[in-house]
């Protein structure tokens, strides 16, 4: 564990707390893509299936259980508690365009052709692109609530912070995980556009609005 990975994980935790806080205080899931949130459940379930047969550390265990349960809780909030505030007509990205190719890529590019290994690889690829429905939705509406942008900034910071972690691990441990690194760089890259507007607008106290 190094400082970058710890900060990354804390940013990931923070993003989830911000999202749940937003839904509870506004009693609404407006502006949040159900599809993106459902993809995260799939990501966590396929990656953390190793909970059943591997022990890494208490930290690792607790975090995995938290990510699975909190993502399930968010789906529950969107699907039942605040269902009337979700507008499916804005959440129209076709997730099969993400799930299908990620699965095929996982079958081709993996470390070992085994069920759990392919599921792990699939989860890495899917996580990289799971934000697409959310970004697509914001592109359609052209705006986002400030709290939603804080959620996205924390979520983007999480994978961005994993990059210095991988560099650090390469120099201190000599380990490289090419699948995670390439997918992580792609994932972070998808946020660059958002980060730009977040820093130049939201952090200056303006509303998140995309140019028409």
């Amino acid at each position: 564990m190094n400082i970058f990975r710890l900060l990354g994980d804390l940013a990931h935790l923070a993003s989830i707390f911000i999202l749940v806080h937003k839904m509870h205080t506004t009693r609404s899931c407006r502006g949040i893509s159900f599809k993106t949130q459902a993809l995260y459940v799939l990501v966590f379930l396929t990656r953390y299936i190793d909970l059943l047969y591997t022990w890494i550390s208490l930290y690792n265990f607790v975090m995995k259980v938290f990510f699975i349960s909190s993502s399930g809780y968010i789906l529950y909030l969107m699907k039942y508690r605040f269902r009337p505030t979700h507008d499916p007509s804005l959440d129209t990205f076709k997730v099969e365009y993400l799930v299908g190719p990620c699965f095929v890529l996982a079958l081709i590019f993996n470390y070992r052709f085994e069920v759990t290994e392919i599921l792990w690889t699939f989860s890495i690829y899917l996580e990289a692109v799971a934000i697409f429905p959310q970004l697509f939705m914001m592109q359609r509406t052209g705006e986002a609530e400030t709290i939603t942008t804080h959620y996205l900034a924390a979520l983007g910071a999480y994978r961005a912070l994993y990059i210095p972690n991988w560099i650090y691990r390469y120099f201190t441990e000599g380990t490289v995980d090419p699948i995670a690194v390439v997918a992580g760089i792609v994932q972070t890259g998808l946020y660059l556009d958002f980060f730009y507007v977040y820093v130049t607008k939201v952090l200056q106290g303006q509303k998140f609005e995309l140019p028409a």
């Binding site: 990975r5 994980d9 990931h12 990656r47 190793d50 591997t54 890494i56 690792n60 975090m63 995995k64 990510f67 470390y111 070992r112 290994e117 792990w120 994993y162 972690n165 380990t175 490289v176 995980d177 699948i179 995670a180």
Partner: peptide
């Protein structure tokens, strides 16, 4: 198999 990274990250 030493070539496979340990999946010890989140």
């Amino acid at each position: 198999d030493g070539t496979q990274p340990a999946h010890d990250e989140l």
